[in-house]
Amino acid sequence: MTDSNRLIEIRWHGRGGQGAVTSAELMAQAAISEDQYAHAFPSFGPERRGAPVLSFVRISRQSPIKVRAEIIEPDVVVVLDPSLLSIVNVTSGLKDDGMVVVNTRKHADQLREEFGIKQTLVTVNATRIAREILGVPITNTTMVGAVVKATGAVKVESLEEPIKHRFGRLADRNFQAMKRAYDEAVIQEKG
């Protein structure tokens, strides 16, 4: 993001149980701790494990956020589970100058070819990172690292407290996984 002062709207795609709401919550809490304006919320409804779910984050450095409606024209789309790409149109409403951040083993070129993604594409193998560091393929905190790198919406350090608060004794490893994804994420600008 070149203009970090404007409102950033992020939509997370995950499956019920993968922690998409937690990712959104951590981002918002990090932003709030930096005295930015921010909020996060889930796609509303009863939770169904495994079903495609959404969560949302709005972050603004300059002005209070008033809109509470769901985000239909996001700046950033995050995909926690690569299998969603073939069943959900994740780029629906995504701004032309927006970006897609995907957990994938594949190269960005291949994803562009398979799913016709036009916007900036950020790839990271979060499942591998999560398996290595957390021992489970749960990628929600890991993917936060890639989003932070790609957007600059919050500082990496700002996530330390929210992660500590949320994960207790597992916080260190979650923070490590997040940082690893920050380091490994590859940003391929819009073509």
Binding site: A28, I32, A38, A40, F41, P42, G45
Partner: peptide, 10 residues
């Protein structure tokens, strides 16, 4: 419900 109860905000 949800629009306010489930919001994470400052």
């Amino acid at each position: 419900g949800f629009h306010l109860s489930h919001m994470i905000e400052a």
